[in-house]
Design a protein around this nucleic acid. Structure first.
Lengths: 227, 227
DNA sequence: GTCCACAATCAAAATATGTTTCATATTCTA
DNA sequence: TAGAATATGAAACATATTTTGATTGTGGAC
């Protein structure tokens, strides 16, 4: 369950927002001043901050650079482009002018909360020039193209969905078994081996790295890297 | 140098955009129809797509789900909220209505090109500059990094969880036996010895101290810089 | 100081894991 | 149904890890 902090001294707007967000399934915290927000952020780390600019105490502009890694959407009545640009470059991930449409705000919140890799229903997965096509079950890179078997495709898709993580073999077997019901530990090795061979044909930069005792990870050697 | 693909059949707007983006230091490609964009995306992977909706051939709405992981900013004259929400939820990262302010567009582009990947993994244990990564089973300190075996990892994790306490060997054997079922008292010594060696390589400040007759404790010499 | 029990390290054997190749079974497709 | 594509299992090999035993070092009791 995602956690959103609303920083706004306007009780009316704040209440409305909180109600709508909670109905959408978010956990909501409130802060009514910049200083209060700062205090709260000291003790907890929400997944997103909705920030009004006109705040008592510490203004939104002053608070923004002190928020750090958490994505911030600025809500403000100021429609001036210079303000917008300043805040966007200053760390905000979006700027919505009041009065705003609630559905649009919810959509924009979702954009910044969604994991960039985890969109279902996409036809292609990409990472560093490597393209996996769901329609044709092929992998492409630098113009070249190879066909993948069902299992190879499942493995590569799993790796591309978590391109930096090490995936334990047990987890891979779990996820892959949806496509190929009985795939044992030893045959997984086979498929990984075959996948490696095909990736090598495609572009030697790509490979499946084994992390001893744990599982596998996609590895891309970052040389030259045009696409 | 970041690479941006402009998909717009309006030559005038496209030229203007290209000019401005190139002046900002981006590499720009152009596509004048949905199908052309698709072709281009087959052979290269830009860092961002600016997508007009009204396109000959394949419309922007149809193209969007086939773009995959690349962040897409939709540029459109349609100001209808339902359209906006649909596209944002459908994979676009932003929606800018024409006519747009160039500075604001540039700022929004920058927001979505900003590197969000630098977030440190959450699966880490830290103590006094020593970082243990669960994902890769590595220990890091001061830039350096060493790989740990399963048992070494289990031992170091145990020590890092109780960084000031002395852990009796019997207890360590208990906890470690989950990972390595048969680890006797004498082989534990071996693993501790190996771990010590690796920690020494990492940073001589860290070591595993033996408490005579009882067990082991993590020891960090607090000289010079602590982090 | 000497002795003893515990601790640390080394080297080598034993075990586990990872990679590839090959042969065989199964499924798919024409 | 035949032939191709795909999946599986076993074997052979390479590599990493764990265990074991021998050896040396160290603290503490007497």
């Amino acid at each position: 369950m995602k956690h959103i902090l609303i920083v706004d001294d306007d009780v009316h707007i704040g209440n409305l927002l909180q109600e709508v967000l909670e109905r959408e399934g978010y956990r909501v915290s409130r802060a009514y001043s910049g200083t209060e927000a700062l205090l709260l952020l000291g003790s907890c780390t929400p997944d997103m901050v909705l920030l009004d600019l006109m705040l008592p105490g510490l203004s939104g502009e002053e608070l923004l650079p002190r928020i750090g890694q958490i994505p911030v959407i600025v809500l403000s009545a100021k429609a001036d482009t210079a303000d917008k640009v300043g805040l966007l470059l200053g760390g905000a991930v979006d700027y919505v002018t009041k009065p705003f449409d609630l559905d649009e705000l919810l959509a924009r919140i979702q954009v910044h909360l969604r994991d960039r890799s985890g969109l279902p229903g996409q036809k292609t997965l990409r990472y560093r020039g490597l393209v996996l096509d769901a329609d044709t079950h092929t992998a492409q890179a630098g113009g070249r193209q190879v066909r993948l078997t069902r299992t190879e495709y499942a493995i590569l898709r799993l790796l591309l969905c978590n391109p930096t993580q090490v995936l334990p073999k047990s987890l891979m077997l779990d996820r892959i078994s949806e496509d190929t019901p009985d795939c044992t530990d030893s045959s997984l090795k086979m498929h990984v081996s075959n996948l490696r061979k095909k990736l090598r044909e495609l572009d030697a930069r790509y490979s499946v790295e084994a992390v001893w005792g744990i599982g596998f990870r996609l590895s891309v050697e970052s040389e030259a890297q045009g696409e």
